[in-house]
Simulated assay, not measured.
Amino acid sequence: LSEVGGEAVTVKSLIPLMSNPHLWQPTAAELSTVHTADVFVLSGLGLEAKFNENLDTLRSTGLAVGVLSDVLTEAEIIRPDGPAAPPDPHFWMNASLWAKAAGRAAEVLAAASPEAAAYFQDRAHDYSTQLEDQHRLMQGRFKELTPHARFLISSHDSLRYLAEAHDLSIRSMWNARGEDYPEEETKKTAAWAKEHQVKLLFRENLVGGENLLARMHDLSLPSSKVIISLSLTQPGTLMAGLSEGLDVGKYKSALKYTCEMIYSTLLTAK
């Protein structure tokens, strides 16, 4: 929203930094903050599940509510457990889909501030172009990987959109909420990891913690396997992947860093 809204908006995120949005429950104080806003925007697809029950109440007060995922087609939405199952909400892991969300953000903001509609549309177009350019760049890099170097395990089931965008195969240790899979599913993941000689474990700091080594043992993954740790952090935090000085506190750079680290590790893992 900040990228699209620029100086015309003041953006406040309700979900605290380093919190798991799947488990976040808004407090009374946070709900009262929403009522002071001109527009309330959600990512959607069930990510903010604990807030969904409040949406009708918010709309009844006249507050403009926008859902970014509304811009997606059904074909673009991943439903891991079948067509009638709940959607995977992590669509921002595909930069091309998030570029579409930027356009949706411009529409939502313009509805609240019609006088700035052209400003929002121009910024959304510029930002979407940057995201599409980055997406194509990373697609080119991932195409360099051999068919045998496209397998990884993530701690948190959040990389399906990234994997689909770049033709990777992925399974996870815990589901999107950080909960254990049934024992039979864990056994299937262990067999899959052994069959494909998985070289990479992608760890997200919000999920796993002290249980990580135990789960790696369950999956027959030795602790010497490569671990990439992704930290959600404040804007201005610079890290270097294949590119120097990436501000991982901002979406575009954080996703680029994630893609570069996964790509380079898969490329060199033995």
Rank of each mutant, 00 (worst) to 15 (best):
S2N: 08
G5P: 09
A8H: 14
A8G: 15
V9L: 05
K12F: 07
K12T: 08
S13Q: 14
S13E: 14
L17C: 10
M18V: 14
S19F: 06
N20E: 11
P21N: 04
L23W: 00
A28T: 09
E30W: 00
S32N: 04
S32T: 09
A37R: 04
S43G: 13
L45N: 11
L47C: 06
A49F: 05
N52S: 13
N52W: 04
E53T: 15
E53C: 12
E53R: 09
N54D: 13
T57H: 07
T61G: 12
T61N: 07
V65P: 03
T73C: 00
D81G: 12
P83N: 06
A85Y: 04
H90P: 05
N94I: 12
N94A: 06
L97N: 00
K100V: 07
R104A: 13
A105W: 06
A106E: 05
S113R: 13
E115Q: 12
A117I: 02
A117E: 03
Y119V: 11
Y119R: 08
D122L: 06
H125R: 13
D126Y: 04
T129M: 09
Q130E: 14
D133H: 11
L137W: 08
M138Q: 10
Q139I: 02
E144C: 00
L145I: 02
T146A: 14
P147S: 09
A149W: 04
A149L: 07
D157T: 07
L159F: 08
A163V: 06
E164V: 06
A165S: 04
A165V: 03
L168H: 00
L168N: 01
I170W: 01
I170G: 09
W174M: 07
W174T: 00
W174G: 06
A176C: 09
R177F: 12
D180K: 08
D180L: 11
E184C: 04
E184P: 02
E184M: 10
E185H: 12
E185L: 11
K187M: 12
T189K: 08
T189L: 03
A190Y: 10
A191D: 14
A191W: 13
E195M: 14
L201I: 09
F202M: 13
R203G: 03
R203Y: 12
N205I: 08
L206N: 02
V207Y: 01
V207S: 00
G209V: 13
L213F: 10
M216Q: 14
D218T: 15
L221W: 02
S223Q: 05
S223D: 13
L230R: 12
S231G: 02
T233M: 02
G236V: 11
T237H: 03
L238Y: 04
A240L: 01
D247K: 01
V248Y: 00
K250L: 10
Y251F: 11
Y251R: 01
A254Y: 01
K256F: 09
T258N: 07
Y263I: 10
T265V: 11
T265A: 05
L267M: 07
K270S: 14
